[in-house]
Design a protein around this nucleic acid. Structure first.
Lengths: 115, 115
DNA sequence: CATCGTAATGTATATATGGGTATAACGATG
DNA sequence: CATCGTTATACCCATATATACATTACGATG
């Protein structure tokens, strides 16, 4: 199976507010409770992961990820309820879109060369 | 109104087989009958426009754009019937997706900071 | 109060991307 | 058969993007 044929992004002021990469990152953060662990799991630099989180936190009217520095295990990061709602909504958009446009999608993909 | 909130791409072997940029380029080529004229209209370098066309032609099992070099006006390029079908299908996908996922989209975009 | 692992930020470097320019090939037309 | 505008391609360079590495801040815990 190929990795997600359909890619959907939501734009905001010319930039991507939400796309497959940010969603995947959020899921890993939610699972790991840490930005650095999520980054490592995705083999992405911590720097980049943090920047993606920062962009999200700044382009929405409420936090998507909250983090604490320091503490027994150095701190950590949690996906907020709102962030989880974003993840869910994004998945729904993906699923509903793929379903609603299944015919046209098939029309296109059936002509993609197999690699 | 903001420029297309929802951006959809169709992936092929890790790369983008079809996205908003390629579709817009195809439309300009269809209208102009020339890659270079389309590129100029989009203020894109001819080199890049040609590469986008090349990628499309190589990742589908039939040509999206056919071109002729030489001739009275130097030649030109035409979008094939298949290419036009791709454009139409893409537009349908955009429209149907936005419609099918309107609720979830609204849930997300209502929390985007106004810029 | 030293330790630990993470957040947060800075800086330098490598890589990818796209633009600019030049040049050759092409072929209908006058 | 010279001209013309376009396709097609190569080469170099500027810029953007992402990585790598380094450093500081943080604060619960032993």
């Amino acid at each position: 199976m190929q990795a997600s044929l359909l890619r959907i992004r939501i734009n905001h002021a010319g930039n991507t507010a939400l796309g497959p990469g940010k969603i995947e990152l959020l899921q890993h953060i939610a699972q790991q409770g840490s930005i650095s662990a999520a980054a490592k799991q995705m083999r992405m630099s911590y720097r980049r992961a943090w920047e993606l989180v920062d962009v999200m936190n700044r382009c929405f009217d409420q936090a998507v990820v909250v983090s604490t520095a320091g503490g027994s295990h150095g701190g950590g990061a949690q996906v907020t309820e709102f962030g989880q709602a974003l993840i869910d909504a994004y998945q729904q958009i993906l699923q509903k879109s793929a379903q609603a446009a299944a015919d046209e999608l098939h029309l296109i993909t059936r002509h993609l060369k197999k690699d």
